[in-house]
Design a protein around this nucleic acid. Structure first.
Lengths: 84, 84
DNA sequence: ATAATATTTAGATATTTGTCTAAATATTTA
DNA sequence: TAAATATTTAGACAAATATCTAAATATTAT
């Protein structure tokens, strides 16, 4: 849970998740959407991956990132416990 | 949304929310549950309050803290958009 | 009024974090 | 094989954060 909330505690990373919700994207495509250097985006993607919020798959010279909805369910579960 | 995820990005603060889910508690009672100084707990409570995740009410010389479930709903909504 | 209790505010410090540039790695194309 | 493209790794640095102790504020009890 720690890695998940750490990953969510950043506007850029939440933006990345919202984009990946629509379609899988390469690291480069994601970087273009933000006014931040590619190494910084790479770092954000690394944090999201460590939290298991995204997965990555090598496609030739590109790396395709996807949202991992399984983990999203785990967050939902935790939040819902607060309501019970 | 920023203040909310910032507030949730800490084990101690999440623990506080889980306790307040069961019953309202004074700052002192909350502090006793953690091996952290009272000023530190006070700081955590302040962050939770800024995120509107808890409310506080003065009861004599005590301050009673409560969970604000309205905001919990807002988090839920954001998480759920990731699944759509 | 004074002392005791509950909590916060102030100020300091070590750690974590987000960002950058430069360099390294991996893949594709000419 | 050499050049171009995509991405990450490494190293540096400023800003944010969690924690502490000491002091301040507010309330209750003697």
């Amino acid at each position: 849970m720690n890695a998940i909330f750490k990953a969510l505690n950043d506007e850029t990373r939440r933006g990345i998740l919202e984009m990946l919700r629509r379609r899988d994207m390469t690291a480069g495509e994601i970087a273009e959407a933000f006014h931040i250097s590619k190494p910084s985006i790479s770092h954000h993607l690394d944090l999201l991956k460590r939290a298991d919020l995204v997965t990555s798959e090598k496609k030739g010279q590109f790396i395709l990132y996807s949202l991992n909805t399984t983990i999203v369910d785990d967050i939902l579960k935790w939040i819902i416990t607060l309501k019970k």
